[in-house]
């Protein structure tokens, strides 16, 4: 029982990070119908920026995160701006464009920070909480709280603000949205910016849990993408549920199948997707697909 619960706790903390990555994927997808293949690399950039401001510039962790999110958001804007001429013309080219941006970001990261990577000490130095023999890292709670806050803010933005409503409208029917005077390009730009910001948030938060290296985003990107699909691609609650589910699933397969855990995780994932191709919260009719 103790192993069971501890496994869930371990899975949830990484799951929260997968959920943030999945949110970024989903937000861009629901707005533009585009899978941003550079998303994983944006996570890496965010992780490096956050760790650099935190460790090298000695800024407080929270401030380092904010700067990292702002800079990475700006990178998101650049990606969207470059790809904008292709919007509604050639979708495949846009997809390949995001892959290209991923390679460019990867090369930039290695050029700027080198290929070796760095360890980031945890900003929360308190001892883990001991709850009836279960150990909960305080930093995990911080990650969960920030992930939850980010999700709530995102949902509020999409449902309560005019700009958010405009983005929802573009997601439903971009031609009709254009007809009523909504600037589709700007809406896409905001989606890309927020998506990149979420990637930086995920990357920055995961730094102290793992090890910041150029390979970081690749692993998180794939798990995050799988999480987005599992929850229903484009769905906000789906991204959260999918992220946590992948995290916990991963954690359990690691305990039971040892060296074959990755294989089992993705077999389970494939079976779920075969049974329910639209994912848990799939609502493809609402979104552009």
């Amino acid at each position: 029982m103790q192993v069971f619960l501890q496994t869930i706790i371990g899975g949830v903390s990484l799951g929260a990070v997968y959920a943030l990555v999945a949110l970024g994927f989903s937000l861009v997808y629901r707005t533009m119908g585009l899978v941003n293949f550079a998303h994983g690399n944006v996570v890496t950039v965010g992780a490096y920026l956050a760790s650099t401001f935190y460790l090298t510039s000695k800024l407080p962790f929270a401030l380092a995160m904010v700067i990292a999110i702002a800079v990475t958001g700006a990178i998101g804007l650049v990606i969207e701006r470059v790809l904008r001429p292709l919007e509604n013309r050639d979708f495949d080219l846009m997809l390949i464009g995001t892959i290209g941006f991923g390679i460019v970001l990867d090369a930039l990261v290695i050029a700027i920070w080198g290929a070796t990577g760095r360890a980031v000490p945890s900003p929360v130095q308190t001892e883990p909480i001991d709850l009836l023999g279960l150990r909960i890292r305080t930093y995990d709670l911080v990650v969960l709280a920030i992930a939850a806050a980010a999700t709530v803010l995102l949902v509020l933005f999409l449902s309560r603000t005019k700009r958010g409503a405009a983005m929802q409208a573009v997601a439903m029917d971009h031609e009709a949205a254009t007809a009523v005077g909504i600037h589709v390009g700007r809406s896409n730009a905001i989606a890309f910016m927020i998506g990149a910001g979420l990637a930086a948030l995920a990357g920055g938060l995961v730094g102290p849990l793992l090890y910041v290296s150029p390979a970081l985003g690749g692993a998180l990107g794939i798990k995050g993408f799988a999480a987005a699909i599992l929850g229903g691609f484009g769905s906000i609650p789906g991204a959260i549920v999918g992220g946590l589910a992948i995290g916990v699933l991963d954690s359990f397969t690691a305990g039971h199948f040892q060296g074959y855990s990755e294989l089992v995780t993705f077999i389970v994932f494939t079976v779920i997707i075969m049974v329910r191709p639209t994912g848990v919260f799939g609502e493809r009719t609402v979104n552009r697909a």
């Binding site: 496994t7 706790i9 371990g10 793992l210 692993a219 359990f252 690691a254 305990g255 855990s261």
Partner: peptide, 12 residues
């Protein structure tokens, strides 16, 4: 036994 790119070792 764990995989080479495993990140969470709680269960083990």
């Amino acid at each position: 036994v764990v995989t080479t790119d495993q990140k969470d070792f709680s269960a083990v």
